[in-house]
Simulated scan of single mutants.
Amino acid sequence: MLNPIELYEDESLESCLLRISQNNYYDSFQDFSDEVWFHVKEEDREVRGTFPATLNTVNLYHSHTSSDLKLKALIKIEQWLEINNFPLLKSALSRSSNTFLRQHSAVFRNGVDIPRILLRKNGIPVCPECLKENEYIRQEWHFITHDVCTKHKTDLLHHCPECKTSINYQESENITDCQCGFKFSDHLTPQANSNALLIAQWLNSENTKLANVWGEHQAISSRFGVLLWYINRYNLTDDFSTSFVKYSLNWPTNFYSELDEQIDKAKTVQIKPFNKIFFNEIFNRLLLDCRHLPTREFKTNSILSHIYQYFLSRYQIQPNSGVFSILLSPLEASTLLSCTTDQIYRLYELGFLKLGVRPKLHQKIASHQSVFTLSSIILVKLSNMQSSQDELHHYLSAW
């Protein structure tokens, strides 16, 4: 049996476990971890691995292969606390089968996929005002996308004002105080940057003008996808809040202008006809980078939707433009059509997709081989052959 604590829906798993161990008078988290591991092994000697002795590796997504022991340990702790409905499991970050962008792995919590690259690796900032009210760590403070507290509209505190040490409760095992003795709740943090606040509120599904741009009903996972796409496309490593908000408020006009510039540049340096030019020679990884954000469904992937709208609007004006004879690979074609590559091969076999090059006899077209004309892909999309009931657009029945 363990002395119970009050659990919070927005609390991180590491914070929960630390408070449980401290509320039950363990000298350190490692002591608590050792006891949990011992009891789990007593009940199931077949389970492999150990229960981590440090907070920064205790979450489920840190497991390289199986997280069975961690799962059993969390269930055991819940049994000791005499609580139901698996609140600790719900607060955990699990490894997701989804990926973002260029194969960025994702973590999963409460129905939301989050790019793992957006998790903080060194320090975990805190909101002094939140700690005054309840002494626990919010999950959102673990994300680099959140530099402000949306509740109090103030900056998060990254370093101790007294000794300048980076704040990290996972290392210090202290939520409220610095190792030097400074109490975080005593600090007055400045008002939040308006752009950073907008982004944090948007990612928390609060109603902001960013929601009006990217979609009011857009899933939180897709919002993380948009932000990661932007950071990756413009190679941003430092503060991105101001530039992202400015970019969003000019969307999609600014994006269309960039694509126009890429086409104009291709015409300027053109040394071969368009029907010999690959799509990625002009637009680089434009399609492949928005293939997983984390889906390629138009209704949830606003980047991909606007890429299609851009090419469609140009096609309606100049259908005979040489640009539409450029060549796409099956992978790029499946992205623009929001379907599987198997569907692309099926469309080709039945003559719906036009080849811009003649393939070698009896040789299957490779997924990266640029062979399909852009115009034929647009025409297939315009034909509305897909079923509205499919998760991905299903243009033709199975073989």
Rank of each mutant, 00 (worst) to 15 (best):
H152R: 05
L18Q: 08
A398M: 14
A333G: 14
L287N: 00
D260P: 12
F274M: 08
N212S: 12
L396G: 05
L131E: 13
K265I: 06
Q139D: 11
L249C: 05
S243Y: 04
P190F: 00
S388W: 08
S91E: 05
T176W: 07
C180L: 06
D390H: 12
Y136V: 03
E43H: 10
Y256V: 06
I263K: 02
Q309F: 02
N254T: 14
D10N: 15
E129F: 13
S94M: 05
N204G: 04
Q218N: 11
C16A: 11
F279N: 01
S305N: 09
R19P: 11
T268E: 15
D239Q: 11
E129P: 11
M385P: 00
F298M: 02
T145H: 01
S222V: 01
K90W: 02
L350T: 15
I303Q: 00
H306G: 02
V47W: 05
I137M: 15
E78K: 08
N207L: 08
F244E: 00
N235W: 08
H62C: 03
R109G: 06
V40H: 06
Q170G: 05
I117C: 11
D147H: 08
I307W: 01
T145E: 00
F274H: 02
Q369G: 01
D68K: 09
R120T: 02
G225N: 02
I20D: 10
V47Q: 07
Q309M: 06
Y315A: 04
I77V: 11
F255Y: 14
L361Y: 14
L227I: 10
K72T: 06
F38P: 05
N195D: 09
H394I: 09
A211Y: 02
V323C: 01
C339K: 03
F86P: 01
N174W: 09
H159E: 14
P330A: 08
P330C: 08
S367I: 15
L88G: 01
C130P: 13
K265P: 00
S97L: 04
N134Y: 13
L227W: 06
Q369F: 13
G225D: 00
I378Y: 11
S166L: 15
L88V: 05
C130W: 09
E297A: 03
K121N: 14
N204L: 07
T50S: 12
F283M: 04
N84V: 06
N110R: 11
S257V: 10
F143A: 03
N24P: 09
I137Y: 09
Q343D: 12
S383K: 13
F224C: 05
G181R: 04
D264A: 12
W37Q: 13
L71M: 04
F311L: 01
E349Q: 15
I326N: 04
Y256L: 06
L203F: 04
Q103M: 04
P4H: 12
S12G: 15
L259W: 14
C339P: 02
S334K: 09
H142L: 15
P252G: 07
W229R: 05
K246V: 11
E206M: 07
S91Q: 09
L210T: 01
P52W: 07
L355P: 07
A366G: 06
T300N: 07
I220T: 11
H159C: 11
